[in-house]
Amino acid sequence: MGSAAQRAAFEELRERLRAGTVPGKRERLASAILPLDEALGGGFPTGTLTTLEGPALGHWALAARLLAQATRRGLAAVIDSGALYPPDLAAAGVVLERLLVVSANAPLITARAADALLRSRTCSVIALDAPPLRSMLWTRLAALAHKSNVLLLVVTPQPSCELAAIAEMRLRCEHVKGEELHLRIRHESVRVRCIR
Protein backbone atom coordinates (compact mmCIF):
# COMPACT_ATOMS: atom_id res chain seq x y z
CA MET A 1 0.00 0.00 0.00
CA GLY A 2 1.46 3.36 -1.00
CA SER A 3 1.97 6.23 1.40
CA ALA A 4 -0.94 8.16 -0.17
CA ALA A 5 -3.26 5.24 0.48
CA GLN A 6 -1.95 4.96 4.05
CA ARG A 7 -2.56 8.62 4.62
CA ALA A 8 -6.11 8.30 3.29
CA ALA A 9 -6.77 5.31 5.57
CA PHE A 10 -5.43 7.17 8.58
CA GLU A 11 -7.50 10.21 7.71
CA GLU A 12 -10.65 8.11 7.52
CA LEU A 13 -9.82 6.48 10.85
CA ARG A 14 -9.25 9.88 12.46
CA GLU A 15 -12.60 11.11 11.19
CA ARG A 16 -14.30 8.08 12.65
CA LEU A 17 -12.64 8.58 16.02
CA ARG A 18 -13.47 12.27 15.93
CA ALA A 19 -17.11 11.47 15.25
CA GLY A 20 -17.01 9.21 18.31
CA THR A 21 -19.86 7.01 17.16
CA VAL A 22 -20.26 3.32 17.72
CA PRO A 23 -21.87 2.08 14.51
CA GLY A 24 -25.64 2.05 14.74
CA LYS A 25 -26.28 1.73 18.50
CA ARG A 26 -25.88 5.03 20.36
CA GLU A 27 -28.94 7.11 21.29
CA ARG A 28 -28.71 10.87 21.30
CA LEU A 29 -30.16 13.35 23.74
CA ALA A 30 -30.83 16.68 22.07
CA SER A 31 -30.08 19.88 23.96
CA ALA A 32 -32.61 21.90 21.93
CA ILE A 33 -29.74 24.17 20.82
CA LEU A 34 -29.91 23.49 17.08
CA PRO A 35 -26.39 24.39 15.96
CA LEU A 36 -24.90 22.41 18.83
CA ASP A 37 -27.07 19.37 18.18
CA GLU A 38 -26.18 19.48 14.51
CA ALA A 39 -22.50 19.72 15.32
CA LEU A 40 -22.80 16.72 17.62
CA GLY A 41 -24.66 14.63 15.11
CA GLY A 42 -28.09 14.86 16.72
CA GLY A 43 -27.29 15.59 20.33
CA PHE A 44 -25.33 14.28 23.27
CA PRO A 45 -24.70 10.54 23.12
CA THR A 46 -26.18 8.60 26.02
CA GLY A 47 -24.14 6.01 27.81
CA THR A 48 -21.11 8.31 27.97
CA LEU A 49 -19.15 10.37 30.44
CA THR A 50 -19.18 13.87 28.98
CA THR A 51 -17.37 16.87 30.40
CA LEU A 52 -18.42 20.49 30.13
CA GLU A 53 -15.21 22.46 30.56
CA GLY A 54 -13.86 25.96 30.41
CA PRO A 55 -13.90 29.16 32.43
CA ALA A 56 -17.22 30.43 31.02
CA LEU A 57 -20.50 30.39 32.93
CA GLY A 58 -22.40 28.43 30.31
CA HIS A 59 -21.75 24.96 31.74
CA TRP A 60 -24.72 24.67 34.03
CA ALA A 61 -26.95 26.46 31.53
CA LEU A 62 -26.13 23.75 29.00
CA ALA A 63 -26.53 21.05 31.65
CA ALA A 64 -29.91 22.54 32.57
CA ARG A 65 -31.03 22.21 28.93
CA LEU A 66 -30.13 18.56 28.98
CA LEU A 67 -31.79 18.04 32.36
CA ALA A 68 -34.92 19.71 30.97
CA GLN A 69 -34.99 17.26 28.07
CA ALA A 70 -34.42 14.34 30.41
CA THR A 71 -37.07 15.34 32.96
CA ARG A 72 -39.64 15.74 30.24
CA ARG A 73 -39.74 12.01 29.81
CA GLY A 74 -38.33 10.57 33.05
CA LEU A 75 -36.09 11.15 36.01
CA ALA A 76 -32.77 12.95 36.20
CA ALA A 77 -30.38 13.64 39.04
CA VAL A 78 -27.96 16.31 40.18
CA ILE A 79 -25.27 15.67 42.75
CA ASP A 80 -25.10 19.02 44.48
CA SER A 81 -22.01 20.31 46.22
CA GLY A 82 -23.89 23.37 47.44
CA ALA A 83 -23.86 25.63 44.37
CA LEU A 84 -27.16 24.59 42.78
CA TYR A 85 -29.73 27.33 42.11
CA PRO A 86 -33.09 25.68 41.37
CA PRO A 87 -34.90 28.77 40.03
CA ASP A 88 -32.47 28.85 37.10
CA LEU A 89 -33.13 25.19 36.44
CA ALA A 90 -36.87 25.80 36.49
CA ALA A 91 -36.45 28.74 34.09
CA ALA A 92 -34.53 26.46 31.72
CA GLY A 93 -37.50 24.08 31.66
CA VAL A 94 -36.36 21.44 34.14
CA VAL A 95 -39.32 19.63 35.71
CA LEU A 96 -38.22 19.91 39.33
CA GLU A 97 -40.63 17.16 40.48
CA ARG A 98 -38.58 14.69 38.47
CA LEU A 99 -35.16 15.92 39.50
CA LEU A 100 -33.40 14.16 42.38
CA VAL A 101 -31.04 16.46 44.22
CA VAL A 102 -28.42 14.51 46.14
CA SER A 103 -26.24 16.49 48.55
CA ALA A 104 -22.62 15.42 48.63
CA ASN A 105 -19.82 17.51 50.08
CA ALA A 106 -16.91 15.07 49.83
CA PRO A 107 -15.34 13.56 46.69
CA LEU A 108 -15.78 9.97 47.78
CA ILE A 109 -19.44 10.50 48.70
CA THR A 110 -20.00 12.13 45.31
CA ALA A 111 -18.46 9.13 43.60
CA ARG A 112 -20.52 6.66 45.62
CA ALA A 113 -23.72 8.58 45.02
CA ALA A 114 -22.98 8.64 41.28
CA ASP A 115 -22.27 4.92 41.44
CA ALA A 116 -25.63 4.21 43.14
CA LEU A 117 -27.50 6.41 40.66
CA LEU A 118 -25.86 4.77 37.66
CA ARG A 119 -26.48 1.26 38.93
CA SER A 120 -30.15 1.95 39.59
CA ARG A 121 -30.78 2.90 35.90
CA THR A 122 -33.60 5.17 37.00
CA CYS A 123 -32.18 8.47 35.72
CA SER A 124 -31.34 9.20 32.11
CA VAL A 125 -29.02 12.14 32.92
CA ILE A 126 -26.83 12.67 35.98
CA ALA A 127 -25.00 15.97 36.41
CA LEU A 128 -22.31 16.80 38.94
CA ASP A 129 -19.42 19.15 39.61
CA ALA A 130 -16.17 17.25 39.06
CA PRO A 131 -14.63 16.12 42.34
CA PRO A 132 -10.94 15.21 42.50
CA LEU A 133 -10.97 11.45 41.95
CA ARG A 134 -8.43 8.87 40.89
CA SER A 135 -8.53 7.48 37.37
CA MET A 136 -9.75 4.14 38.68
CA LEU A 137 -12.95 5.73 39.97
CA TRP A 138 -13.51 7.74 36.79
CA THR A 139 -13.01 4.58 34.74
CA ARG A 140 -15.56 2.78 36.87
CA LEU A 141 -18.11 5.57 36.54
CA ALA A 142 -17.59 5.76 32.79
CA ALA A 143 -18.05 2.01 32.48
CA LEU A 144 -21.23 2.14 34.56
CA ALA A 145 -22.56 5.01 32.45
CA HIS A 146 -21.94 2.98 29.31
CA LYS A 147 -23.52 -0.15 30.78
CA SER A 148 -26.58 1.73 32.08
CA ASN A 149 -26.95 3.90 28.97
CA VAL A 150 -26.96 7.04 31.13
CA LEU A 151 -25.47 10.40 30.21
CA LEU A 152 -23.07 11.36 32.99
CA LEU A 153 -22.36 15.09 32.75
CA VAL A 154 -19.32 16.31 34.62
CA VAL A 155 -18.94 20.07 34.93
CA THR A 156 -15.47 21.45 35.57
CA PRO A 157 -13.49 24.63 34.75
CA GLN A 158 -10.40 22.54 34.10
CA PRO A 159 -10.49 18.76 34.09
CA SER A 160 -7.80 16.71 35.75
CA CYS A 161 -5.59 14.57 33.54
CA GLU A 162 -7.43 11.44 34.65
CA LEU A 163 -10.84 12.87 33.82
CA ALA A 164 -9.64 14.31 30.51
CA ALA A 165 -8.32 10.90 29.53
CA ILE A 166 -11.47 8.98 30.50
CA ALA A 167 -14.15 11.33 29.16
CA GLU A 168 -15.65 10.11 25.93
CA MET A 169 -16.78 13.60 24.91
CA ARG A 170 -15.42 16.95 26.07
CA LEU A 171 -17.08 20.27 25.40
CA ARG A 172 -15.33 23.48 26.17
CA CYS A 173 -17.28 26.68 26.74
CA GLU A 174 -15.38 29.91 26.19
CA HIS A 175 -16.22 33.60 25.98
CA VAL A 176 -15.39 34.67 22.42
CA LYS A 177 -16.16 37.77 20.41
CA GLY A 178 -16.49 38.03 16.66
CA GLU A 179 -16.41 34.31 15.91
CA GLU A 180 -18.26 32.81 13.01
CA LEU A 181 -19.98 30.11 15.04
CA HIS A 182 -21.56 31.28 18.25
CA LEU A 183 -24.29 30.00 20.45
CA ARG A 184 -26.43 31.99 22.83
CA ILE A 185 -26.59 30.51 26.23
CA ARG A 186 -28.01 32.60 29.10
CA HIS A 187 -27.96 35.72 26.99
CA GLU A 188 -24.19 35.63 26.49
CA SER A 189 -22.37 34.77 23.33
CA VAL A 190 -20.20 31.81 23.93
CA ARG A 191 -18.36 29.46 21.66
CA VAL A 192 -18.79 25.78 22.22
CA ARG A 193 -15.87 23.88 20.80
CA CYS A 194 -16.00 20.15 20.57
CA ILE A 195 -12.52 18.90 21.51
CA ARG A 196 -13.21 15.21 21.10
Binding site: L75, L96, A116, L117
Partner: peptide, 27 residues
Protein backbone atom coordinates in the same frame (compact mmCIF):
# COMPACT_ATOMS: atom_id res chain seq x y z
CA UNK B 1 -40.27 5.78 33.13
CA UNK B 2 -38.54 4.58 36.28
CA UNK B 3 -39.77 1.49 38.08
CA UNK B 4 -41.11 2.61 41.51
CA UNK B 5 -39.44 -0.31 43.23
CA UNK B 6 -36.02 0.59 41.80
CA UNK B 7 -36.54 4.18 42.86
CA UNK B 8 -37.47 3.09 46.39
CA UNK B 9 -34.27 1.05 46.68
CA UNK B 10 -32.21 3.90 45.18
CA UNK B 11 -33.57 6.40 47.71
CA UNK B 12 -32.70 4.05 50.57
CA UNK B 13 -29.17 3.54 49.21
CA UNK B 14 -28.56 7.25 48.75
CA UNK B 15 -29.79 7.97 52.25
CA UNK B 16 -27.46 5.32 53.64
CA UNK B 17 -24.51 6.73 51.63
CA UNK B 18 -24.96 10.43 52.21
CA UNK B 19 -26.80 10.43 55.53
CA UNK B 20 -29.56 12.59 54.05
CA UNK B 21 -32.71 11.84 52.12
CA UNK B 22 -32.47 12.85 48.44
CA UNK B 23 -34.39 16.05 47.93
CA UNK B 24 -36.65 17.83 45.50
CA UNK B 25 -36.30 21.54 44.85
CA UNK B 26 -39.29 23.86 44.96
CA UNK B 27 -39.43 27.48 43.82
Amino acid sequence: DADPRSVAVLLARLEALTGETPQRART
